[in-house]
């Protein structure tokens, strides 16, 4: 074999569509994280137990309080349960997928091992956003989903196919906004190292998403919709599921998320071009 056929087996004719490649890549990254979690048995079960415990701790007060909940700014008790479900799902996705990936990527930047990530023949951002995963935190997502189903079933709001579709679209927009915000935080760590604490700030900020948009004064509502779009992530998807959101608003929220995504992508490209690696 010589240089001409060194890349044999990795040439273009053997490769499938890019979407399939990225699906396989993300699956392989998640598999690596799962294998890491399974590598240490005690750690695996402890993580699992803690994941369950956090889910129960997060949801239990709601069950205690549900009988005593009055209306909050036009939201009935079961509607608040739907909102809490949306929040719990998003929080679970954050702690299972985004937060560990951001922390691992920031560590890569700090130690200079981002070099290896950037040398792989795939989109560096996709590799960074899927490089770590805490599978047990997906329990929270299931818990949140159960709350949404319970809230919709037991509440008075009429559940329609259009409402569900609007909820899905708004939820997807919320998730995109969350990831875009995460990418901007990651890009900040290219300039200022040791910014892992920012992921905790993100986590703390997300707590505002527990509340309906209507409880915030207009200025904060604008801030949490267009600048730090926490309400796009939780309150608006809940409203959409409850059939209270117009398609015009859904489109606006999707536009906000898309704009954030474009900004995040531009910031990433700029950050990588300015990347100086760490000296060895």
């Amino acid at each position: 074999m010589n240089a001409a056929d060194l890349s044999e087996g990795t040439d273009a004719k053997g490769r499938g569509p890019r979407l399939l490649f990225y699906l396989r890549l993300v699956a392989a990254q998640l598999a690596m994280s799962t294998l890491t979690a399974l590598q240490y048995r005690l750690g695996f079960w402890t993580e699992g137990l803690l994941g369950l415990l956090w889910s129960v701790i997060g949801i239990a007060p709601l069950f205690v309080a549900v009988d005593h909940l009055g209306a909050v700014e036009g939201w009935g008790r079961w509607e608040l349960v739907v909102l809490t479900g949306c929040f719990t799902m998003l929080s679970g996705l954050f702690t299972a997928l985004l937060q560990p990936a951001l922390r691992a990527s920031m560590t890569h930047i700090l130690k200079g091992t981002l070099d290896y990530v950037l040398l792989r023949p795939a989109d560096g951002l996709v590799l960074c956003l899927t490089c770590a995963f805490q599978p047990w935190h997906l329990v929270e997502v299931l818990g949140g989903l159960a709350l949404v189903v319970a809230g919709l079933s037991l509440g008075e709001a009429e559940v329609t196919a259009t409402g569900l579709l609007a909820g899905l679209v708004t939820g997807a927009a919320g998730l995109m906004a969350l990831y875009a915000f995460g990418v901007l935080v990651l890009c900040a760590s290219f300039r200022a190292l040791q910014l892992q604490a920012l992921t905790h700030v993100m986590e703390a900020l997300m707590d505002f998403g527990r509340w309906p948009a209507q409880v915030f004064p207009p200025l904060l509502r604008l801030l949490f919709t267009f600048v730090i779009p926490l309400l796009v992530m939780t309150s608006y998807p809940a409203e959409a599921l409850l059939g209270r959101l117009s398609w015009g608003t859904v489109a606006q929220l999707a536009a906000v998320s898309a704009t954030l995504l474009v900004l995040a992508r531009l910031a990433w490209v700029r950050s990588v071009r300015g990347y100086t690696s760490a000296s060895s």
Binding site: E8, G9, T10, G14, R15, F21, R24, L25, A28, Q29, A31, M32, L35, R120, P121, A122
Partner: peptide
């Protein structure tokens, strides 16, 4: 396990 991951990333066919 790392080698297997690289197989996916570099799209190396299983025989090679």
């Amino acid at each position: 396990d790392n080698f297997e991951f690289n197989r996916v990333v570099y799209e190396i066919d299983p025989v090679h």
